[in-house]
Write a protein that binds this DNA or RNA. Sequence first.
DNA 1: GATGAAAACACACCGTA
DNA 2: TACGGTGTGTTTTCATC
Lengths: 152, 152
Amino acid sequence: MTDMDATDQAILRILTADATLKASEVGRRIGLSQPAAWRRIDRLTQAGIFQGRRLDLDAEKLGFGVTVFLGVKLAAKGRTSLEDFERAVSAIPEVQTVEHVLGLYDYRLRVVARDLADFERVLRRRIMTLPSVGNVESNVLLSEERRPGPLG
Amino acid sequence: MTDMDATDQAILRILTADATLKASEVGRRIGLSQPAAWRRIDRLTQAGIFQGRRLDLDAEKLGFGVTVFLGVKLAAKGRTSLEDFERAVSAIPEVQTVEHVLGLYDYRLRVVARDLADFERVLRRRIMTLPSVGNVESNVLLSEERRPGPLG
DNA sequence: GATGAAAACACACCGTA
DNA sequence: TACGGTGTGTTTTCATC
């Protein structure tokens, strides 16, 4: 199941960078024929390695120039608090990601806004009014780099 | 450029959830013929709305059961400090994302590890030894939900 | 909506290590 | 036995009319 050789890892590296590539192109890049590459991709697919292929949007092109990470500490933490918080935060369109975490904060949110003035509106009227919300910390995104991560 | 109607937004919602869907299937879901859907997708593509299609891997299936978010505050912050830090952090395979941010922290890192013991190794031998690293805060990921975000 | 062209898939079969 | 190459039928998808 997790017996991946260097070729499989190369395939994952290629597909995590660009999932639109076809088996023939993947094969060409690693020196494999189309059927051989297809067989390997199929095997990885069967193994459930792939979680999904998502389309990444260019937030700036859509008019959202500001991305902010929020660390949220809840004031009260019962089971209902978590559920209420999650339900309420899911209704805020500006929230792109909701991460339930362990540590100094209880939740990390990725929020986009048109500009800083718009972000202030979201923060004051949407975030600070969430149920059970306690301390909130903001980090404005300057730049971001994604890497394939370890593959085996 | 940003003149998107509700139909375009529906298309973006569908494709951000599953980028493998073809024009015909997208059209079927929103009550549009295949060519009509294709033309709209093509127009959105030309507008540069799409940043890329990436394959998401199942980290657990690869043997990485632990995901941790690190907030890093640098001890010294000259131009060279930032560059040295970024170069060094890029050499750590366990780091999936490097975000340069403004606020209480200077960088946010998404790090995966096989388990908590493995994470401790990464933290002590890789992260804490980075150049200019000051305070480091860890948040262990429990669960994560991604949402389409605002589309217009 | 129909349709032709292009391409990508997916299998069979064989060779090799 | 496992893996790759070649060849090929079939399906899907694109893209125009």
